[in-house]
Design a protein around this nucleic acid. Structure first.
Lengths: 216, 216
DNA sequence: GCTGATATCCCTCGAAAGGGGTATTTTGTT
DNA sequence: AACAAAATACCCCTTTCGAGGGATATCAGC
């Protein structure tokens, strides 16, 4: 049997402990080699551009640039790179978001290590793995990101920040404290968000934001 | 220098990868010895009852019995055990919840491994570590759990129905119309839901429900 | 019988939300 | 410099929430 080159993989996750777990799990396998790590989306993109690994394993929930946003960028830079989203949640919206951003797969952090290794090697061999869960949702991998959402909903930077706070369940007072604004200003922005999203309540706004992947 | 017995520690987290990371990090230190692991709250309680470690490190977000609920139970069984909550979120409410359940400390998963080791050894030596963050929230460790022993989430059928309506963005009036109830009844159930989920707003309730996969 | 859990309904009251304005300052782009 | 867009802040107002109190009725289980 010929000796194959190991699959090179890049890890991005904001939890050092988890990265260590992954690294060590892969070290034990000579078919996979970890070539780099990052703890946020920005860093991940920069390093991946430099390292060009076979596979990028990106956590969805990272500070700064989120995994989904990073995936979107990477998918444009490397149309053929195998990108796997890693996440704590099996939330349907998160999954759709990641897949829409251009991920080739979505993996739960509850995954067993051997399964993960198997998934990665299969991916590298060109076989697409579509879990029954993804099929249930009617999602198939390798979708191209729907023509750059640039327009979004015309939300400004500030409005997106506030929307994000909103999605975290904060009330106006907490949001004002988080962003160092007056409550009145938050209310003003909130009105703009509601108008742009055609939402009638904060819950409605968050639901619509999730649906349209505005939370990145 | 005399040779001390290593601190025995129990790990509970539903992510095998993270547990592996922790285990390996501790293996490198001869001052800490991992005596057991679990991937859910029920299992953790059973094993901890059998093993009686010096320190229990429990993830807050686990399927089945959550970390906070497990902490509450363990605190009653072992009033003096050092219990540390581990979490992805630096959400004030989560922190308060864990501390109220009887945790001695709250640790973010973004923690550096060396810091974690230091924290644990300090704890074992009897020194309480109160992070500036906890102080900001006016929280001090070693609080006794307030009797409230609501096991899992224990939502009733009706409460689940209302929670679902809530997640759809309905207000109390719409919910009452949907379920043929008076608004007052909806409010009563809503209060129960808030209490059980420890939510402070409807958005918060929905967020927590999503996180704990209560919406299906 | 008693108890506990569930479900239903009612009241008050202060705090937040939500909708309508207007106005100033900052920032970015012609 | 001129202009547009964004960000900030405040006013008014009504409705809805959410936290306190209660209360009654049913049904299961001991």
């Amino acid at each position: 049997m010929e000796k194959e080159k190991p699959v090179t993989i890049f890890l991005a996750d904001d939890h050092p402990l988890l990265r260590m777990g992954l690294s060590l799990a892969f070290q034990a396998k000579d078919t996979i080699r970890v070539v780099g790590e990052a703890d946020n989306g920005f860093d991940a993109i920069e390093k991946i551009k430099a390292l060009v690994p076979d596979v990028a394993l990106l956590d969805i929930d990272m500070p700064g640039l989120s995994g989904s946003a990073a995936i979107r960028v990477l998918r444009k830079l490397f149309p053929d790179m195998k990108i796997l989203a890693l996440s704590t949640y099996n939330d349907e919206q998160y999954i759709r978001e990641a897949m829409a951003a251009g991920a080739n797969g979505y993996i739960m952090k509850t995954v067993d290590i051997d399964n993960l290794v198997e998934i990665i090697t299969c991916f590298h061999e060109g076989r697409e793995i579509v879990s029954p869960y993804l099929l249930d949702l009617g999602i198939s991998p390798q979708q191209r990101p729907p023509e750059d959402d640039g327009a979004a909903f015309g939300l400004t930077r500030r409005e997106k920040q506030i929307l994000k706070c909103l999605a975290e369940g904060k009330d106006n007072k907490q949001i004002s404290a988080t962003l160092y604004l007056s409550v009145e200003t938050v209310k003003t922005h909130m009105k703009s968000i509601f108008r742009k999203l055609d939402a009638r309540s904060r819950l409605d706004a968050v639901t619509k934001a999730r649906r349209h992947r505005l939370l990145e």
